[in-house]
Amino acid sequence: MAAAAAAGAGPEMVRGQVFDVGPRYTNLSYIGEGAYGMVCSAYDNVNKVRVAIKKISPFEHQTYCQRTLREIKILLRFRHENIIGINDIIRAPTIEQMKDVYIVQDLMETDLYKLLKTQHLSNDHICYFLYQILRGLKYIHSANVLHRDLKPSNLLLNTTCDLKICDFGLARVADPDHDHTGFLTEYVATRWYRAPEIMLNSKGYTKSIDIWSVGCILAEMLSNRPIFPGKHYLDQLNHILGILGSPSQEDLNCIINLKARNYLLSLPHKNKVPWNRLFPNADSKALDLLDKMLTFNPHKRIEVEQALAHPYLEQYYDPSDEPIAEAPFKFDMELDDLPKEKLKELIFEETARFQPGYRS
């Protein structure tokens, strides 16, 4: 834990890192770190609560700039109880001085990944967590956004079992017609939660990839272990087919990539493993919904509104309290091709509203 900075004593240090967030945020305490930044909790002297502050230093890398800009653009436009918001952003007053960006968010005690390492969940908890994931996802999908990296560590939890989806750095506007060349190379989302079509096709992607990830998360809540822990690309596919069985001819016809289709045709026939054999203690309604989410063919996979209306979630289902976005989200430009200098300018502009004396 960093010592509390005395008023006016300059930035606090946390594990050798400068955290320049005073005077409003003090009493910093280390939480963890990701690929390009550290997260601390801090005391907000204005709202009198502890908050989470993520320090991001992305400006050396085009990919990190892209992810940072995506996350900020999306989260500043989203407003939903099951999606983490941005409360404040701290950065230098000029673009030349801006080396880091500090993002202030609600402090959540833990995440689903940490929880599943230590606790076996009751059916009631599984049901409530799944409902909140789908409630947040309904809003995301209504904005025409794909999260693309749903996994237990991106689901934040607090002691009252509130759940918030975080990390929109890989999110995209849904565009089933656009052929994202190089899709697989830039697709760094965790393999275990990846839909089979991501490994088999490169053309376009749809909201059904997020539903697949939610199915993987439900299976993990039922058993405290990942359902498809593939060691590499082909191993991942083999794990999936080992449980779902061989795809039907109709399902194979959806695979545009001939090499991928021929690979699947070359494999020995596998039978589907019954879900109640894998999860003998699970609620039968939970397994019915799991089956509809972990469907090989993305066109037959359940959609988020149908999933919310499934009998497993009937005690929570309330369409009048499951809000959607006001308007579909649009990125003005494809960020993939922009140089990091341009992305830095866009991050600077996007964060201006939090600067003292800002006038829109």
Rank of each mutant, 00 (worst) to 15 (best):
A5T: 13
G8P: 10
P11R: 14
E12Y: 07
E12H: 10
M13G: 14
M13S: 12
V18K: 12
V18Q: 11
Y25E: 05
T26A: 09
S29I: 13
Y30K: 06
G32Q: 03
A35E: 10
Y36E: 07
M38G: 09
S41M: 11
V46A: 01
V46D: 15
N47L: 12
V51D: 15
I53F: 14
I53R: 03
K55M: 13
S57G: 07
P58Q: 03
P58N: 01
E60M: 11
H61S: 02
Q62A: 10
T63K: 14
T68G: 03
R70M: 11
I72K: 06
K73L: 14
K73P: 12
K73R: 13
I74S: 05
I74H: 06
L76D: 01
F78M: 06
R79W: 09
E81P: 08
E81C: 10
N82F: 00
I83C: 02
G85L: 04
D88F: 00
I89P: 02
A92H: 00
P93A: 01
T94W: 07
I95R: 05
Q97K: 13
Q97D: 11
M98R: 06
M98F: 11
I103R: 07
D106M: 00
L107I: 09
D111M: 06
L112W: 01
L115Q: 15
K117E: 10
T118Y: 01
T118S: 14
S122Q: 09
S122F: 04
H125Q: 15
Y128D: 05
I133F: 14
R135W: 01
R135N: 00
G136F: 01
K138T: 05
I140K: 11
H147T: 03
R148P: 08
D149K: 06
K151P: 01
L155D: 03
L156C: 05
T159S: 15
L163P: 11
K164E: 10
K164C: 10
F168L: 15
G169H: 03
R172V: 06
A174L: 08
A174I: 04
D177F: 07
D177N: 14
D179C: 08
H180T: 05
T181S: 15
L184P: 08
T185S: 15
T185Q: 12
A189S: 14
T190N: 10
T190Q: 10
R191F: 02
Y193S: 11
Y193N: 15
A195E: 12
A195S: 14
D210P: 02
C216L: 09
C216A: 11
I217E: 10
A219L: 13
E220Q: 09
L222F: 10
L222I: 06
S223R: 14
P226D: 04
P226W: 07
I227Q: 03
F228E: 01
P229N: 02
Y233K: 11
Y233H: 15
Y233C: 07
L234D: 11
Q236S: 09
Q236M: 09
L237D: 00
I240N: 13
L241F: 11
S246M: 01
S246C: 14
P247T: 14
E250N: 00
N257T: 14
L258H: 07
A260S: 14
A260W: 02
N262F: 02
L265Y: 06
S266W: 01
S266A: 03
L267P: 03
L267M: 15
K270P: 05
K272A: 05
R277Q: 09
S284G: 06
S284K: 07
A286Y: 00
D291C: 11
M293F: 04
L294T: 05
F296V: 09
N297F: 08
H299Y: 15
I302Q: 13
E303W: 04
E305M: 03
L308K: 03
H310P: 06
P311N: 02
Y312D: 07
L313I: 06
Q315P: 05
Y316C: 11
Y317V: 00
Y317N: 14
E322G: 02
P323H: 14
A325P: 01
E326T: 02
E326N: 01
F329N: 02
K330D: 00
F331C: 04
M333L: 15
D336W: 01
D337Q: 07
D337Y: 15
P339V: 10
E345T: 01
L346F: 00
I347Q: 13
E350V: 14
T351Q: 02
Q355G: 08
Y358M: 12
